[in-house]
Every structure is written in structure tokens, then in C-alpha cells.
Design a protein around this nucleic acid. Structure first.
Lengths: 303, 303
DNA sequence: ACCTATCATCCAACAGATTGGACGATGGGG
DNA sequence: CCCCATCGTCCAATCTGTTGGATGATAGGT
């Protein structure tokens, strides 16, 4: 097998017009260059350079080899340059995955803003509620919303924003009925429950600024679903009170379709976290994306 | 500085779809491949491969690097292939140099014959009587005619053909005067002398088949010159007897313009020798040329 | 759910390449 | 014409990179 580095040494020796000149240029001992070129000639079975202590010339075969080798080195430089370019500024494609609702309500605006700020970066955003093998499917970032700490893995985690669960009710419903003033009064209202594995149908409420203990509200939900959008629409339709991550209901809160119930109470503390397949060698494009999320997402999901 | 061999390892790992597969293909330990790819990633400052024990994928940057690297390797293969092609059969250019007279009278026909037999080989024939730096000016072969052993040098020598010096006289001259029968009778004839540095104007004659000692004939030349053609033409014009390498007068002998004088005597023994800049790594084209000379030249210069 | 086969990485012993100084050769300058 | 500067090669001491086995992790088979 030929040593591809010898192609480089050979071309350098030819370009500089001798071993000594190339040695100075490359900061390598001339003995090394001499040895490498000899090795290359031995591997090819052909003399490439006619060398005497003064004059210096290529053989016919050496000339042809030189032309090909020079082209090869140019390709190698292009390969390296393409990487260096990616390292110098955010360019290329960032592959992102998250749950459907997270993408829909937390990320959409922030991603759009990122695309405007970084014209040379493209984003592939894959929204799915199925578990995704971040490494196996070559994602650069996965954004996960979670209440409990994520199981530690080989992935690198970066906390992006708090995303508290809040209580919401349809505006028409709240107008027609008594708006609850205390957690206890919630029991008198129908409830809509976001179903998750291993979670019983209760709300665990905690006052937002006081250190009071949590209040557990047992539920008999009128609707249980794992679909946040369905629950939200049920709440808008006046079917009951719902607890959802705040950002999911941001639009409806602004339009007035939904109103917060017990606005000084939180129905749970979840966090939006970015997961990266590795820490070393992060491209500027990915780094810029993560930074953008870390800065913008807290505002985007704040109520 | 990046190690160009790592480009190859990286491409192999990607092509085979994993370190272990590439390791089997290349007959290299996977630890080596793992180390080399890590080294490459460190040198570039970018993660190229997303590797888990099962799945295997390239990063965005890795994909772009892969495409360039694959092209680079193709160039490298072309560089090697061009050499291998030259090694498989005689192709390319053979650069030849010799003295003008040697080229003219000894080599011309033989070179023409070589060109016919090897259609893919071109010959650059440089005829000059000035001393030539074979290595410095990139000649593949130099053909030298010489009486004394050539000074040994770093060059490789290959004896091609004996080229004895013979005595000639113009046909008209010999008809008009007594043709000499013995070396002693030569003194009565005017002589034309080929002038060489360090050689006094004498002929040292030796009988061709007998072991008799040499006969020294002192001369008072009518013409001394270092130009063989001029001396030959003087002999044809009947100005005297001349000693020249046989092959120089081959044409005139056939046409009858010249005739040999004392045909059983030799006026000196010279040899045609090929000089090559190196022994190892001879291209088939050059090797074929030398072989052709070694086979054809003895016949071409035989009288 | 456990176990096994497979995969990439890590680590210390080793082998081969690198290194710099000495040598012989060559060509230009005084 | 001789000497000196420069060049490529050679050689032994050193050092980096390779090697193969051990380790930890993962996914699929049973």
C-alpha cells in the first residue's frame, strides 16, 4: 500500500526544487524527505526524481505522477477547506428533532427567527412523538420537554428554558361558571387530563412565589388523552379545566379563547432541554442554534 | 498538518459501514482505524462520524468531507495507475543522447527500427559532441563510443557492441596508387588523422585474428581534424588513408566510394556503451530500448 | 427479561518511522 | 585552479504510532 503522505512530500520536493528547500519549507529534516521519496519510488517500482547534488529533475514517469499527485493534493485541500469553512461561520444544515407539540408550540417561532438571523444555515426539523435514536439517525439536536430529570446517557444535555404547566379554562366556560379561587374549588369543575405513562389522574399544584407545600387535587377527568392539542380544544369548547405546559396555550391566551385558572399556582414544573450527540467538535451552525435556543426559548415560552 | 492516509481510512470506514468491517477489508486492527479517524477528527476539529455500537452514520460535515476525500482518492489511484501502466508495457518517451557521429552512423537505423517495433514509445534523440550531464538533463540513455574503459561513475554502464577502427582509402585513390599490403607500406601514403585529446598522431595496428603484437605507424598527417565526416570526405576525395570506426564508413563501403585498406588489420578497438542514470526502477520503455540496442547494434555496426 | 454476540474504545508493550549529525559529491567563486 | 558552500544520502538513537487484548455498551435472540 502506498503512503499518501509521500505524494505530498514528493510534490513539495518538486515544487521547491530540491530536498533542502522543501525541508526548510516543511520544517522537516531532509533525511525524512529523502527517505519518504525513496519509499515512494520503491513502492511504485519507478524512479521519479533524478537527483544529483546540484541539478535536479524529474523522470518522464515522475512528471506524469507529479501532475496527478498535484491534482490529488488540490482535492485534499478542498476537502479540508470545506470543513474549515464550516468551522469559520455557521453554514450547513442543522438537523433537529422534537415531540410534535414541542415543535409546534415552543420551537416554531424560534426556529423561524433563527433561519432569518443565519441565512447560510438550513434546518431540518423532524417532529415525532416516537422515540428517536439521535445518534443513529444523525440528528444534531433533540429538544425534549420533561418534568423529571432525563436519564443520563452518553448524550450531552443543555437546559434551555423552564416550561411550567398551568391551568387553563375556556373563556366562555369561565364566564358562565364560577372561576375557581382556590385549589379546593377546582373539584367542582370538570377536568381534562393529559395522560402520561405512570402518572395517575391528579394535579399537583404549587404556589408560584410562596414556599407552601403542594396541593394534590384528585381528578375524575371528563376527558383523558395523550394529545395536548385535543385537550386544549376541549378546554376552548368549554368542556372543563385543563393543565398544560404554558407555551402550548400561548396563542389562545392572547386571543382570549383561553384564560388562566388560579394564575398564582403552577400545575407542574417541566423543563425544555436540548440533547446533543457529543460535546467536542460542535459545528458553529449547531452551536449557534443551541445558543439561539438558550437565549430565545425562555422568552418564547414565558407566559 | 493532516495525515492524508486518514482520508483513506475514513473513506474505507464509511464505505464498509463500520470500523470492524473496514478492519477486515484492510487487514488492519480496528483499534488503528478508530485511532486514525479520531486523529482526523481532532485535526479538523469536527466530528465526522456518529458512532454507536450498532448504528453508524455521518455528520453533515462528514458527508461533505467524504465526497471530497473520495474524489481525492480517485486521483491518487489515477496517479498510481499511470505509473503501473508504464510498468506493464513500453510506453512513454525515451530520452537519448550521444555524440553526433554516433547518432548519425551507428544509431539512426537502429532507433528507427525501435520506433517501428514499439508504436507507443517516442524517442527524443539529442546529438551533441559537448559533454552532457545525463542526470541533470534527464536523459534515460547516453550512448558513448570509447576506446579506453570509461571512468567509473555513479552511472550504470552496459556494453552494446564492439566498434573497431579500420583503415579506409578512396576507391579512385587506391586504384591510382599501390594499395598497401603491410603496415610498413602505409608510410608511403598520405594520412588523414582523427584528432583526439591526449592521442599522438600514430596508428596502432593489430592483426585481426593472430595474436601478434601491435605495429605502431608514426604519421605525418596531411589533415588532422576532430570531425569524422570531414576526414571521411577527404578520404573519398583521395587525399589519403584514414582510420575511422567501421560503422562511420559503412555506406561508402557498400557504394564503393571507400575501400578497406589492410582489411586483416584493426586500427583500434572501441566499444559502444550505453550509460544509464540508475539501475533500479528502469521503465519497460527504457529497458526495451536498451535491449533493442544490445541486440541490433552489433549487427548494425558490423562490417 | 435475561443472555449473548457484536461493536467501538481504551491501554500498555512493541515496532517501525523520524531525526539530526556525519559523509561524499558537486559546482561556483576567488 | 583550488577551496568552500551546498546538496543528497547514510546511519544509529530516539520517539511516535501501531498492535492485540481487555473493557463497556448495545441490540437482538430465546
Amino acid at each position: 500500500m502506498l503512503d499518501l503522505n509521500d505524494f505530498f512530500y514528493f510534490v513539495q520536493v518538486v515544487d521547491r526544487g530540491g530536498f533542502t528547500a522543501a525541508s526548510r519549507m516543511l520544517r522537516l529534516p531532509k533525511s525524512t524527505l529523502s527517505h519518504r521519496v525513496r519509499q515512494l519510488e520503491a513502492g511504485l517500482g519507478v524512479r521519479l526524481l533524478n537527483r544529483t547534488s546540484r541539478r535536479f529533475g524529474m523522470t518522464d514517469a515522475g512528471g506524469e505522477f507529479y501532475r496527478h499527485a498535484a491534482e490529488m493534493l488540490q482535492q485534499a485541500e478542498q476537502a479540508e477547506a470545506s470543513i474549515r469553512h464550516r468551522l469559520s461561520e455557521p453554514v450547513g444544515t442543522v438537523r433537529l428533532t422534537s415531540a410534535v407539540a414541542t415543535m409546534q408550540f415552543a420551537l416554531r417561532g424560534v426556529v423561524a427567527d433563527f433561519l432569518i438571523r443565519h441565512p447560510k444555515v438550513n434546518v431540518v426539523a423532524h417532529a415525532t412523538d416516537q422515540s428517536v435514536d439521535i445518534i443513529g439517525e444523525n440528528y444534531d439536536v433533540a429538544v425534549r420537554a420533561h418534568s423529571d430529570p432525563l436519564p443520563s446517557s452518553t448524550l450531552v444535555q443543555r437546559t434551555l428554558a423552564p416550561a411550567p404547566w398551568l391551568l387553563f379554562g375556556g373563556a366562555a366556560y369561565l364566564d358562565a361558571n364560577d372561576t375557581p379561587r382556590t385549589p379546593e374549588e377546582l373539584r367542582r369543575h370538570p377536568s381534562l387530563f393529559m395522560m402520561r405513562t405512570g402518572v395517575s389522574p391528579t394535579w399537583r399544584l404549587r404556589h408560584s412565589n410562596e414556599r407552601k407545600g403542594e396541593v394534590v387535587v384528585p381528578l375524575m377527568p371528563r376527558l383523558m388523552s395523550d394529545d395536548m392539542v385535543g385537550l386544549k380544544q376541549a378546554a376552548i369548547a368549554g368542556l372543563g379545566i385543563v393543565a398544560l405546559p404554558g407555551y402550548v396555550c400561548r396563542e389562545e391566551l392572547r386571543s382570549g379563547a383561553l384564560r388562566r385558572v388560579l394564575p398564582t399556582w403552577l400545575a407542574g414544573a417541566s423543563t425544555l432541554t436540548a440533547m446533543l450527540p457529543y460535546r467536542q467538535g460542535l459545528l458553529p451552525s449547531v452551536r449557534a442554534f443551541i445558543e439561539h435556543l438558550a437565549v430565545q426559548l425562555p422568552q418564547a415560552v414565558a407566559m
